[in-house]
Design a protein around this nucleic acid. Structure first.
Length: 849
RNA sequence: GGUCGGUUAGCUCAGCGGGAGAGCGCUCCGUUCACACCGGAGAGGUCACUGGUUCGAUCCCAGUACCGACCACCA
């Protein structure tokens, strides 16, 4: 029990009891015998198990579960799996820390290796396979913890349908799909400049890149012009000077028009480089004329391609300065010896060190104009990285997407986005793509790229000659297995082969989450029953990654869309409007939240927020949810306590309540089917609090207590319906009450969604009239500071005859509830509405203390 | 710089052509016979601003300001 609260229902006990029951009874099992059109399939976002669950997970996973539960009660066969994302860097890092190991792919597998958690001492190097085994071990522990939290939260996942993104099935699907892409020409190996993280020493994709503001400075450097003259270039990256291959200015820029076509001479390195005109040069920036280097940014890569000259690379894969080929080609420098003396001072330095060193050399050479001018500008970073990205030439596998933008946008239009504005976000992202998707990563823990390359007779790798495994062999690891027709002793030998050492980008596998649980491609019956999926839920930050890659892969695989609907959850923000958890660590922990408020309240909190809307965290909404749970349990206790047979509602007040509930059922269903769980909850909750507990329960009390069949029947019917309306949100409390009835009914969560046809009644205004009079009586007592049970001698209601006629049949309940002795109805056609005068009686005999 | 959202009561948010709303907080009152994780009665707002459309605008249109997100810009 949570601290210091002895009162109230024991929610935790209730949660455990029902969670066990649901699991045992298989309430959330998928039924494979039912057809595609009656099945609702969720493509669950696999959480990264090496991280921790945060409040945003609770929020968005509940959104999914709400819709799933609504669909289940509407009669759908639900396929709601759980995936664990254990593939990728976070796991790799966690394993390194847990066991104090590093992966060394050159080591042989040690099948005896046993390591303790929290192992101390020297860092131990282990083989790739051993490393992956350790990852598996860690990840299974993490998965257990996650599952516990999700089960408490009450996700109606079919826990028989789980997968992990590194498991055999996922590796199989990932490799098979990749080989299909290769076969169709949708994946290709390129030796080209690629965005590169110098710390992780891996290629990264555009979707993993983010901008960060960094301080920098403009260095104004003087360049000479061949045949006389000079000009200044302002650059924030002087260390790229030795990589300069050309200089460019805008064709309309009069200042430099006379230079176009001539050669500039780079300072220090004395390289003659062409001065070209290009529209992409902005006359407003810097001095309006700039260096083209290999490679400062994506624009440089493009210019370099157009120029068709060899790259002059200076940055190594670890971010240090490379030894340069000065002197090897005559065109590189007019004075190779001098260039080399400068460059030698840079070799091995970090980029920042080199920047300072070049600046000093320029200063000494007298070609630096003035002090460097401070500036702040955005710099591209790998989202998990700490140093700026560089463009480095390397051999990578790409999935071309630049030539398919229109088709991918068209695919996005076939999908319903909730809310719709996020379709635009997707389209903007696709339109803004400027690089093909690089899917290879120079990491160890992940799905290996299933390719080998031939080694020619001279011992050189021939990347044009590739070997692929047969589909039935998958999954494979080319570092440990030989290609068909070869043996392991030919690895690396002349006439032999080498395995591709890389793994896939984690998104390359995540892009296939609709296919991993579906049985594709062997169990086509199952696949057809599950694919395309119905619902992809996720937050808006991964539209550009997960949604994009999934749509892309489905399109390339067979032209399909992966799902019919995408539901976008917003973020939970701190009071300072930053994404919770990203600002200074005051994020609420899911387990603490569940314990303090109970799962139903947490679900209520989530359900209160519309799809797509970022929501500031507010404890009060959780309290509100808990209050609703308590109220529901208490009101139910009252209703269940009435003895006697119930009958169909005949009393006008009862029939009015039912008529009003009927409207709520219609409205709630309309909202649910429009993906608006928040409005559905609001309309249901508002009826429950106001019509039902505040008013009807009070008005019907006396009658029900006396055993009036209409009142008792009405209470039971209304409860039965409102429980089901609330069941997708308050899963525990509704189940608890549902099964307190006379006969066991089975789980509420597999009961049919309420239909308006269950509710027959009419409300001509009697309900509002009754409430109006009751409120006036309450107000009179409140004004007089007397108890709600204080007797009323007389009430007089004045108003149009038609309205009095509506009031009269329901008045007796009002009189009883208000302890009213006598009443008068006074017709007054001049009055617009009912006017109530209340005359209080004498104080009841009470012990005067 | 482009795009998409937002701006409504002290706070968190609904509403979106004809009544200014909810919960919390606040004030007053009551109560233990379902509920103190309670009940009742109240106070509190030029619906950011400026124009326009309309018989009528918080709501539709145009613009402005501020907040946020995404994208672009990296000389």
């Amino acid at each position: 029990m949570a601290k210091g609260k002895g009162k109230g229902p024991d929610l935790r006990e209730m949660e455990i009891r029902w969670a066990e029951y649901w699991e045992k009874a298989g309430v959330y099992r998928y039924d494979p015998t039912r057809g595609r059109d009656e099945t609702f399939v969720v493509d669950t976002p696999p959480p990264t198990v090496s991280g921790s669950l945060h409040i945003g997970h609770m929020f968005s996973f509940t959104h999914t579960d709400l819709m799933v539960r609504y669909r289940r009660m509407k009669g759908d066969n639900i396929f709601y799996p759980m995936g664990w994302d254990d593939n990728g860097l976070p796991t790799e890092r966690r394993v390194q820390n847990v066991f104090n190991v590093r992966c060394d792919p050159t080591l042989p597998y040690d099948d005896d290796l046993k390591l303790e958690w929290g192992r101390e001492g020297d860092v131990l190097s282990v083989s790739r396979t051993n490393f992956i085994e350790l990852c598996d071990e860690v990840v299974q522990e993490d998965e257990k913890k996650f599952q516990e939290v999700f089960q408490t939260l009450g996700l109606s996942v079919d826990w028989n349908e789980t997968y992990a993104t590194i498991n055999r099935r996922s590796r199989y699907v990932s490799q098979l799909s990749f080989l299909n892409l290769v076969k169709k020409g949708h994946a290709e190996l390129r030796d080209a400049p690629t965005m590169w993280d110098v710390d992780f020493q891996s290629a990264v994709a555009q979707a993993e890149v983010e901008d960060r503001e960094r301080d920098g400075a403009f260095y104004k450097i003087r360049f000479d012009v061949e045949g006389g003259g000079d000009f200044h270039i302002a650059t924030t990256r002087p260390e790229l000077l030795p990589a300069c291959i050309a200089v460019t200015a805008h064709p309309d820029d009069k200042r430099y028009a006379n230079l176009i076509g001539k050669n500039a001479i780079t300072p220090l390195f004395e390289a003659p480089v062409p001065i070209i005109a290009d529209e992409a040069a902005d006359p407003e920036k810097g001095t309006g004329i700039l260096m083209i280097c290999t490679f400062g940014d994506a624009q440089d890569v493009e210019w370099w391609r157009e120029l068709g000259v060899p790259a002059r690379e200076v940055i190594a894969r670890n971010g240090s300065i490379l030894a340069a080929p000065w002197g090897e080609s005559p065109w590189l420098s007019n004075d190779p010896e001098r260039a080399k003396t400068f460059h030698d001072k840079l070799v091995g330095l970090s980029i920042n060190q080199a920047r300072r060193a070049v600046a000093e050399m320029l200063e000494e050479a007298g070609v630096l104009d003035g002090e460097p001018e401070k500036t702040r500008r955005p710099v591209k970073f790998y989202e998990k990285g700490e140093r700026p990205l560089e463009f480095v030439v390397s051999r990578q596998w790409f999935i071309p997407v630049m030539d398919k933008k229109e088709q991918l946008i068209e695919q996005g239009r076939k999908i319903a986005w909730h809310p719709d504005m996020f379709r635009k976000r997707y389209e903007d992202w696709v339109e803004g793509l400027n690089l093909d998707w690089c899917v290879s990563r120079q990491r160890y823990f992940g799905v290996p790229i299933p390719v080998w390359y031939a080694v020619d007779d001279d011992g050189h790798v021939d990347y044009d000659k590739k070997f692929f495994p047969a589909p039935e062999e998958l999954p494979i690891d080319p570092s440990e297995q030989a290609p068909p027709g070869y043996t392991e002793d030919q690895r690396g030998a002349p006439g032999g082969f080498v395995g591709d050492p890389d793994i896939f980008d984690t998104w390359a596998t995540s892009a296939l989450t609709p296919l991993i649980p579906s049985g594709w491609p062997h169990d086509l019956d199952r696949h057809k029953a599950l694919y395309p999926n119905n619902l992809r839920p996720n937050a808006h930050d991964i539209i550009r990654t997960w949604d994009f890659v999934t749509i892309t892969r489905s399109y390339l695989e067979d032209g399909s869309i992966p799902w019919s609907d995408v539901a976008i959850s917003g973020w939970i923000l701190d009071p300072d409007r930053k994404k919770m958890g990203k600002s200074k660590g005051n994020a609420m922990v899911p387990t603490a939240m569940l314990e303090e408020f109970g799962a139903d309240a947490v679900r209520y909190w989530s359900a209160s927020a519309k799809l797509g809307v970022d929501t500031t965290f507010d404890n009060n909404v959780l309290r509100e949810g808990k209050r609703l749970v308590t109220k529901l349990l208490n009101a139910s206790r009252l209703i269940r306590g009435y003895e006697g047979a119930g009958a169909s509602p005949t009393h006008p007040l009862d029939r009015a309540l039912i008529a009003r509930l009927r409207k709520v059922v219609e409205e709630a269903d309309r909202r649910w089917s429009a993906w608006d769980h928040a409005a559905a909850l609001a309309v249901t909750e508002s009826w429950f609090w106001s019509d039902f507990t505040d008013n009807y329960l009070e008005l019907s009390k006396a009658r029900a207590y006396e055993g009036d069949a209409s009142a008792i029947g009405t209470l039971r019917l209304a409860l039965d319906v409102v429980l089901r309306l609330l069941a997708p949100v308050l899963i525990y409390a509704t189940e608890e009450v549902w099964n307190q009835g006379a006969e066991p009914q089975g789980s509420i969560h597999t009961s049919p969604w309420p239909s308006p046809d269950e509710l027959e009644g009419e409300d001509e205004g009697g309900f509002d009239a009754a409430v109006l009079v009751l409120t006036q009586i309450r107000k009179a007592k409140s004004d007089a500071s007397v108890s709600i049970k204080f007797p009323v001698r007389n009430i007089q209601v004045r108003g149009p005859a038609a309205q009095l006629k509506i009031l009269e049949p329901v008045l007796s309940d009002v009189l009883t509830t208000g302890s009213v002795e006598t009443y008068e109805l006074v017709p007054d056609e001049g009055a617009e509405s009912l006017q109530v005068s209340v005359t209080l009686g004498d104080a009841p005999a009470s012990p005067d203390r």
